[in-house]
Design a protein around this nucleic acid. Structure first.
Length: 259
DNA sequence: ATGCCCTATGCTATAGGA
């Protein structure tokens, strides 16, 4: 079972690239972030033609998440609990109705910059709410895949230029404390247990030749519940598609689970 | 130097991203 996550930075601008990648990489499930459109505007037909079921949680212009799956999706939940006033489309849950059911959480965690604005406390509160949801998931004692754009650089080795990120919302001590809470609860950073070396990134800024200079950061992650981590056989980043025409500024990362 | 680029938007400027 291959499960991927990919911040596509606009589904309508990225549809050809997305379809090419789906054909090439053939994930059973793809969790998408930043679709940047309302549900009715999501161009589902070309994706459905490849055999995927499509579930969206969209929003006009900004944010928006979606799940593509070759198996049926049930128990769909849109939005993250804990703040009724939060209308940003950043969280989508579903249960994969496969021979071995898997609980899926697709997330687009707030950026949080600048840290002296209201955006940073929103990010931290959002991470607190997410941590609370992860506690619920642990109690289910089921394989769970919690994946997406975390907007978190977990460690200095996850950035080409870590000094540049000092004080930034993606690398702030308050942000990292909340990331560690999730890991310390018992969730596994799938990429890190498979690949301990530095120099592996999932995002390169469009500006300043970030890709050409390989000045990337690792901010798209896949967390696995203990029951999910027991199934982990591989985790990789599809780095090369960042170099194609009209790419997203993020690239996909995926896990292979033995189930 | 919150620039440099890209996406979306009642669009020829602005907001948001990271």
């Amino acid at each position: 079972m291959k499960i991927a996550t990919f911040n596509i930075n606009g589904i309508r601008a990225r549809l050809p690239r997305l379809i090419d990648w789906l054909v090439e990489s053939r994930p059973d499930v793809a969790l998408l972030q930043e679709i940047k459109c309302i549900d009715a505007a999501f161009p589902a037909s070309g994706i459905e033609d490849l055999g995927y079921t499509v579930v969206t949680h969209g929003q006009k212009s900004f944010n928006g998440v979606a799940i593509l799956s070759k198996y049926p999706l049930v128990d769909i939940t849109r939005g993250l609990a804990g703040d009724e006033a939060d209308t940003q489309a950043r969280w989508l849950e579903a249960v994969l109705d496969a021979p071995a059911p898997i609980h899926l959480c697709c997330l687009y965690l707030p950026n949080g910059n600048p840290v002296d604005s209201e955006k940073f406390p929103y990010k931290l509160a959002w991470m607190d709410r997410m941590g609370n949801r992860l506690v619920d998931l642990l109690r289910m004692e089921t394989p769970a895949v919690v994946a997406g754009d975390f907007n978190v650089i977990p460690h200095g080795r996850d950035a080409a230029l870590p000094e540049k990120w000092r004080g930034d919302a993606l690398f702030h001590p308050e942000t990292l404390a909340r990331w560690r809470r999730m890991v310390n609860l018992g969730f596994t950073d799938a990429f890190r247990v498979m690949t301990p070396t530095p120099g592996h990134y999932t995002f390169w800024d469009y500006q300043g030749g970030g890709w050409q200079r390989d000045e990337g950061i690792r901010i798209d992650h896949i967390l696995l519940s203990p029951q999910g981590a027991d199934l982990l056989s591989d985790c990789r980043i599809d780095r090369d598609i960042r170099g194609l025409e009209k790419p997203s500024d993020h690239v996909p990362i995926w896990v292979e689970l033995d189930c």
